Amino acid sequence: MKVILKQDVENLGSKGDIVNVAPGFGRNYLIPKTLALEVTSSNMKMIEIERRALKKRLEKERQSFEGLIQKINQVALTFKRKSGEKDMIFGSVSSSDIKDALHELGFEIDKKKILLEEPIKRLGNYSVPIKIFQEDRAEIKVEVLKPEEEIEEEKEEEGIPEEKKEEEEIPEEKQEEIEGENVKPEIEVQAGEEKEMQEEKKEKEEMPSDEEEKAASEEEKRFFFNYSSIEFNI
């Protein structure tokens, strides 16, 4: 059956459109809800008059929305979200977030008219279309930024001197080299001590023992005794 729409019907048409629908859908839903009027041969003339009047009303409504479209086109919304790797944000910016932000600016926009295909999940700049009247659209600018504290933290990290960064990020090979240099003096000290001990040991080995000294003393006594005996005999 044919009906003329008296209101915009999603996925069907706009006000004033003549469309074909299933009889059950037309008679049980559209007509009782005053969303449409059945088109018949008897009311065709009346419907044509209604369409002309409707067209004039639509034109006036469109003109009244032109000012709103211009105002919304100048809107720029900023959302701040914490972010991680590759500028991916924690959470998202959804149609509900945009609706609430527009409400704070004095614009009452149905969430369904915010044509955001999917929630925003990355830092950056976006253009979001807003359905205002039938096929007429406005477009707002949406910017997603990092919070001030996150920006300050990044600035502090960037302000660290290069020398300090190098100390904090010493490569593993360099670290082993430094550790080796720290151990080297200790090894040299140990080697020096060992050398001194060997020299002391050598000196002790070269020195006569107590028994050797005693034997030498006895030998000297015998020598002097024999020498004295020789002198006495003479």
Rank of each mutant, 00 (worst) to 15 (best):
L12T: 03
E206I: 09
A216S: 13
D17P: 06
V189E: 08
F65A: 07
E163M: 06
V183T: 08
E203S: 11
I187W: 11
K195P: 00
V39S: 02
K2F: 04
T78N: 13
R137I: 07
S41G: 15
K113R: 15
N226I: 05
A138V: 06
A216C: 00
K60S: 15
F224E: 09
I114D: 11
V21N: 00
E231F: 14
I140T: 05
L77H: 14
T40K: 06
Q190L: 12
E179G: 01
K82H: 14
E104W: 01
A138M: 02
K113T: 09
I47D: 10
E162R: 11
A216Q: 10
A36K: 09
S229R: 11
E169K: 13
E176I: 09
T78Y: 12
K214Q: 10
G16K: 02
G180C: 02
G180V: 05
A215Q: 10
K202S: 15
Q63E: 15
E162G: 02
D97T: 05
D136M: 09
E173K: 07
M197K: 13
A216I: 00
F224W: 14
K112G: 02
Q7F: 02
D17C: 00
K99D: 07
I170S: 01
E220Y: 07
E66R: 13
F79E: 01
E10K: 14
S14V: 09
E231I: 11
T34P: 00
A36P: 03
E212S: 03
